[in-house]
Design a protein around this nucleic acid. Structure first.
Lengths: 219, 219
DNA sequence: TCCTGTGAACATTTTCACAGCA
DNA sequence: TGCTGTGAAAATGTTCACAGGA
């Protein structure tokens, strides 16, 4: 889960996490108007949930009618900061990093990577789409000069902590960490979201497992 | 979030999601014993949280002492079903799929992929580690013959829904969907967890954005 | 009438505080 | 004394139910 620096906040985290999903539906929408029911169906959330989420930032739907698609989209982009082109740095251009670099070059609504860094000479200098991979030794100057506030970490476990430290030191505001080890330090300076894909798969295993025998507390 | 088929449940979802993190710490642990405080520090959760999670399935720590590392590890593996070698199928061997295939071949504790499928002739027949990529047209027989219960979807958005349908039809119990579009159908037959990495990045953008101007509900 | 916006009820999750065993 | 296990309180998140404007 996201750990916050301060805690004064008006919009719940859970709402923030759903906004990008609404946004994507809105951007694939041809009609000018939509409703909370339609938005709910296409995102998998309840219509009440949708309305409550949108109401948090004073969304103006029209009673009896619904929401204006482009206006609402613009508003969500503004909340998320996506209208101010959030620039990010990706560290670790392996398969996962490459996948993320490609995804984010497909849509305009996405977070844009201003740089991709790696320490592998075989990778440095190569391009993923329009982004040229640079040497990780330039991490500090890249972050400072391009005013990067968001970092995505896709490095091996062993490197994660030290790279995170350098990123925090260089002044990024948040780190989305995909390395298979949690980043635990410096959480008052940067916000860290750990997202470990192998852990997610292990959790899923539970849901396909028969548990009849489990609960009688084992002795 | 995970949507459940039934809802009788004793261990909360939130607990299940943390168990793999505890497990990983336990397996990198040299000492024979550990405590809820140590486990908390290394996973980023509070010690009370750890104790409560472990108590759900009748864990036996020893008061005044702590938990037996190997016993607790074994117990968590059992809860998650990882001691019965959960076999999974990966569909879509792009960069993300390849990354997942590699990760899960590194540790014994992980979910093991029994098959990887794709529709690209360039990819079919190739190997990622010890796993040979097979033609997606064999999806149904692969799932049935290898008794696969868990599917990981890393296909393009356009293919996600139809592949999910085939997987559900073939009898998998759960789908972990990384495609940038939510799987919404058939949720009473299979459990679906949608995990969209680009959406996660967009949500992170919020946390590095200044919001002073936002809240005065916009008019 | 239709669909939003929202207080209130409900449910879930986390944190607190401490009793109790080794 | 040290650390677990657990009720109770607090916080957070979701659903219900309906008032009210277009």
């Amino acid at each position: 889960m996201v750990q916050r620096r301060a805690n004064m906040r008006r919009i719940p985290d859970s709402t923030i996490r759903r906004l990008p999903a609404y946004l994507r539906v809105l951007e694939s929408q041809k009609e000018e108007r939509t409703t909370s029911v339609a938005l709910g169906e296409r995102t998998g959330y309840s219509s009440e949930q949708v309305r409550k989420d949108l109401a948090y930032f004073g969304a103006f739907g029209t009673r009896g009618v619904g929401y204006d698609v482009s206006q609402l989209g613009q508003q969500i982009r503004h909340i998320l900061g996506l209208d101010r082109s959030v620039t990010a740095v990706l560290v670790g251009v392996g398969h996962l990093g490459t996948a993320l670099l490609r995804y984010t070059q497909e849509g305009v609504r996405d977070v844009q990577f201003a740089a991709a860094l790696d320490n592998n000479p075989q990778v440095i200098g190569g391009a993923i789409g329009s982004i040229v991979v640079e040497d990780i030794k330039h991490l500090e100057s890249v972050v400072r000069e391009r005013k990067i506030r968001l970092a995505v970490l896709t490095v091996p476990a062993a490197a994660a902590e030290s790279v995170a430290l350098r990123l925090a030191e260089a002044g990024v505001g948040a780190i989305l960490n995909f390395a298979p080890v949690p980043i635990l330090t410096d959480q008052d300076r940067v916000l860290v979201q750990n997202l470990d894909l192998t852990l997610e798969m292990q959790a899923m295993a539970y849901f396909v497992t028969e548990h009849d025998d489990l609960h009688p507390p084992v002795s």
